[in-house]
Nucleic acid binder design. Structure first.
Lengths: 181, 181
DNA sequence: AGTAATGATTCTGTTTTTACAACCATTGGA
DNA sequence: TCCAATGGTTGTAAAAACAGAATCATTACT
């Protein structure tokens, strides 16, 4: 599990490193062949899942990292952009934002203060609990959040260049992956 | 392009928001039907690509964000972990690391200093250019990088729970997506 | 009513990251 | 050989992020 990686294992995957051995989509027979050998029952699917996960992370985190670009375009730190997008998507209490953004309440008070100063967010009283404050986005805040979403949400060229059948397959599978958890 | 998002557009996608309209993987016929209507030639694939991209980002960035967990487990900031993983994968010059980690040389000098102090990295002279210094990982550095990779590289449960045929399809398609660009 | 718990804020301090100027050693070419 | 360019380091300043204690108003519980 913790065997040493070779020099080229993670950062610069070679051609054989991120590709399945043959064409598992067409005929998943080799999996059973491997299973009939000396391997554990689900070791081959697990290896495939690890390979898929590594490639997905590379696609999202390395090849299409647009945090910096977005932050520069909007003139604020990416954390604030993240907070604003979250607020624009769903007005919430401060503590909710803190937990969902993996931060703490004091810092979010600061961040929301900044967003309010910029005219992008507002604090509203909670309808029933007067301790809470609901943070929501102003029209200007929604506009900025939309600009961020336009940048971050534009699919990479590789995705657009995919054969329609593959894209459709991805569409269906990723929908499944994001519904349950 | 910059139309206002509704309140629930981005942060909390509803069931209809991240799923294709029907079952496009089985029968891509509706795409042509839509095309035969008043839409542009490739607007339906583009919409699918955007939906796929949004779901992929959600999967990697929201549902399986393990930066904090990894940083806490290894006792160093995630940027240092990223640098160490990069160094362990491929010894490089400082300037190379700086550009690939989207940072600058002075800061990487600092970060490498810290990794060296921790006994995880070493500076070696460049074989031909005495200005350069090749930064590589010590055995202890490789061990830590492997621990990070074990955490970050473990696929999410949803991926492991996928039907073998879907996983195989993902395996093939993601390999294509990460080879060219 | 009294008390504990909660939500947000304020305060304080530290670490991390970004950015830029200046510097030294070395290299490559005019 | 001289000079511009490169690679790494040092130094400085500031923003950004993380973390914890303490405070205040409000709420929930007994």
């Amino acid at each position: 599990m913790t065997e040493h990686t070779t020099r080229t294992a993670e950062g610069a995957p070679t051609a054989a490193d991120n590709a399945p051995t043959a064409a598992p989509a067409v005929s998943p027979a080799e999996a059973f062949m491997a299973e009939s050998a000396a391997m554990a029952a689900d070791s081959a699917p697990e290896a495939a899942a690890e390979r898929v996960w590594r490639n997905l992370r590379a696609l999202v985190l390395e090849r299409n990292e647009r945090r910096k670009e977005t932050a520069e375009a909007l003139g604020m730190s990416f954390f604030r952009i993240k907070a604003l997008r979250r607020i624009a998507a769903k007005p919430s209490r401060l503590s909710e934002l803190a937990t969902e953004l993996a931060s703490d309440r004091p810092y979010l008070t600061l961040v929301v203060d900044d967003l309010v100063k910029r005219g992008l967010a507002e604090r509203h009283p909670h309808p029933t609990d007067r301790r809470c404050k609901i943070v929501s986005a102003t029209p200007a805040g929604h506009a900025v959040a939309d600009r961020a979403n336009a940048i971050l949400g534009s699919p990479p060229p590789a995705l657009l260049a995919l054969p329609p059948a593959d894209l459709a397959a991805l569409d269906r599978i990723t929908a499944v992956l994001t519904t349950d958890g």
